[in-house]
Structure formats: C-alpha cells, structure tokens
C-alpha cells in the first residue's frame, strides 16, 4: 500500500492505495465519485476523462499513485454553487446525450478544448473530441452543445 494525497474538486483526500489502482477506480470506488465512467479496456472511449492539473486525461490509463500531489477535476466538480457549467447546460439544451454514458467524459474533454480554443469551428470540435466515443447520438448534437457552451462562455468573459 502507498499513501497518496490528491485534491479532487477542491477537496483534499489522503488514502492508502495499491500501486496498481487506476485513477478511475480510485475516484469511483475509494471516493464514491461515480460520475466518471469506464467504457472500455483499450484507452479509446474517453468515458473516464478527468482533468489532472488542468489537462484532460483518461483516468483509466493513469495510476492513482501518479496523481499523488495533483489536483483532479471530475464532472462532479464542474457546477458552481448549484449552477450548471455552460457545457452541462449546453448538453441539456441541445439534446447532446441519449443514454448519457459518454457524457461526463465528453464534457470534460470539451472543457479542455474550450480552455485551449474558446471559439472552435465545427471541425475543430470534432477533432478535439476524437478521444471520446458515443454509441447513441451520432455526435451532431454534441457538436451543437459544445458550440452553445463556447458562445455562452465567450459572452460571459468578453476578451
């Protein structure tokens, strides 16, 4: 067992973990943050995407011990004081989900994309979400949801 301290959604947690514990299992099973999903065994689906020190990462392909000392943001950490993040609102408004399984990862990847590029074109959104697979929507409404959020975030924070 190794003792790690990880800040998740602003709160610090110290826990003993086996080195082989994947970050996604640490979040889901040790911290009960089940918003982060597991959709594959091959690091391809993106259902598990979280932010580690501000950068999006597939938490199924990072060891929990590697997050020692880091700051992790999950889907549960996006809303502020009960107000949905513009991306969450966008997925709601634009019908960006059906079963919702891919949605937490999609939103976390999109958040990284918008941090790098506040005004992405449709093509840039599709390229930016290459690491996230959706079995339901056909992606059209996901792209619309991200555009909705991008517009809203730009309006809130004039350059």
């Amino acid at each position: 067992m190794t003792t790690i301290t990880v800040t998740v959604n602003g709160k610090s947690y110290t826990r003993d973990v086996e080195p082989r514990t994947l970050l996604v299992h640490f979040l889901r099973e040790h911290l009960n943050l089940t918003g982060t999903h597991i959709g594959c065994d091959t690091s391809q689906c993106g259902a598990c995407v979280v932010h580690i020190d501000g950068k999006s990462a597939k938490s199924c392909t990072v060891l929990a011990v590697q997050a020692d000392g880091a700051s992790v943001t999950t889907i549960e950490g996006l809303a502020e004081n009960g107000t949905l993040h513009p991306l969450q609102e966008g997925f709601w408004e634009k019908h960006g989900l059906q079963c919702g399984f891919c949605t937490p990862g999609m939103i976390m990847s999109a958040a990284d994309l918008l941090a790098q590029n506040p005004n992405p074109s449709e093509e840039e959104i599709r390229h930016g979400l290459e690491g996230n697979l959706c079995r339901c929507t056909g992606y059209e409404n996901i792209v619309r949801a991200v555009r909705y959020a991008a517009e809203k975030m730009r309006a809130e924070q004039p350059a």
């Binding site: 993106g46 995407v49 392909t61 290459e130």
Partner: peptide, 9 residues
C-alpha cells in the same frame, strides 16, 4: 497522434 488525452500524457 491519437487524441488530446493521449497527447497530454
């Protein structure tokens, strides 16, 4: 290469 998440790590 891969996608943003693969390139981040």
């Amino acid at each position: 290469i891969g996608d943003i998440q693969v390139r981040n790590r």
